[in-house]
Design a protein around this nucleic acid. Structure first.
Lengths: 148, 148
DNA sequence: TTAATTTATATCGTTCACGATGCAAAAATA
DNA sequence: TATTTTTGCATCGTGAACGATATAAATTAA
């Protein structure tokens, strides 16, 4: 058995697992709001600035339209946002929050601190957190560049 | 706008993104082998030790049967493994590699080093890699415990 | 031994993620 | 201006993830 093929040696498997577990940890916080984690991400983008194009959202979340469009359609059905086609450029779609979508920001205000509590472990010092964020940002840059 | 709700401040979004980008980076390496990343994970478990129960695999990958069973069914259809029901305990299902499944280990032997090259960036020293792995393992433990 | 409970796996329905493809509007080129 | 190419978004099909539920075998309790 090649040492490299052992699962425990794999950074990638850890990242895959952590990502899944985090999404699971969000569930009890987001379900009362009627949101999934990807939907919450879309709302964070729109809470930061309303009335953005589909392309703005895909770039921000680093997802493609074939993921984001159905996501937005479901959120539109839920009455969280409205999609308006063809303003200046007829190809574009503008995404705007409804009153309900805006109002959710208030209800979601405790989600980040609850998640922070969930992730906080004994040794979670500020330095390690910062180092982790830096490493992840580097990885995102590295992979993004090599892909394209 | 609450500072905490800003996307860029979110460790979780970074982990979600890194995980997705890594799966994407695996694709060109695994597609020639006819594998997806989760299927590759299952094979790594079975290459390490053949003839394991479904429960062994779910525990190892920290997934549930409702994810693993369909995954194994697709892999069985592809002729990579065989599922045998009811040996000593009639509820269990034993998963065994076929010749084709075993043979893939040879073909996959360069995948880890190729991925390592993909992830390697300028400043990726051994220390940071080790620190990253430690942080992720801590997070996995923390979330796992709090969930159950 | 029969009945109740637990365990191991499977099934179902919904939402993502994403490659491939389609399509209409806009921009570039002839 | 007519044609080609590009761009922005949508649609389709497949494979995960996962909550909820189902089912049959094994275990425990009565």
């Amino acid at each position: 058995m090649l040492e490299q093929l052992k699962l425990d040696n794999q950074l990638c498997f850890r990242l895959y697992t952590v990502s899944r577990l985090i999404t699971q940890a969000y569930r009890p916080l987001l379900e009362p709001l009627g949101l999934t984690y990807p939907q919450y991400l879309v709302l964070m983008v729109l809470w930061e600035r309303d009335n953005q194009l589909v392309s703005d959202i895909t770039h921000r979340l680093m997802l493609d339209t074939n993921t984001v469009t159905p996501l937005l359609q479901r959120m539109e059905r839920e009455g969280l946002l409205v999609r308006t086609r063809g303003i200046a450029d007829g190809r574009q779609t503008l995404v705007s929050l409804t009153h309900k979508g805006k109002h959710l920001e208030e209800k979601a205000k405790d989600v980040p601190s609850c998640m922070a509590d969930n992730l906080r472990c004994g040794s979670s010092d500020v330095e390690r957190y910062a180092s982790l964020v830096t490493s992840l940002d580097e990885m995102i840059e590295t992979i993004k560049v090599k892909e394209k």
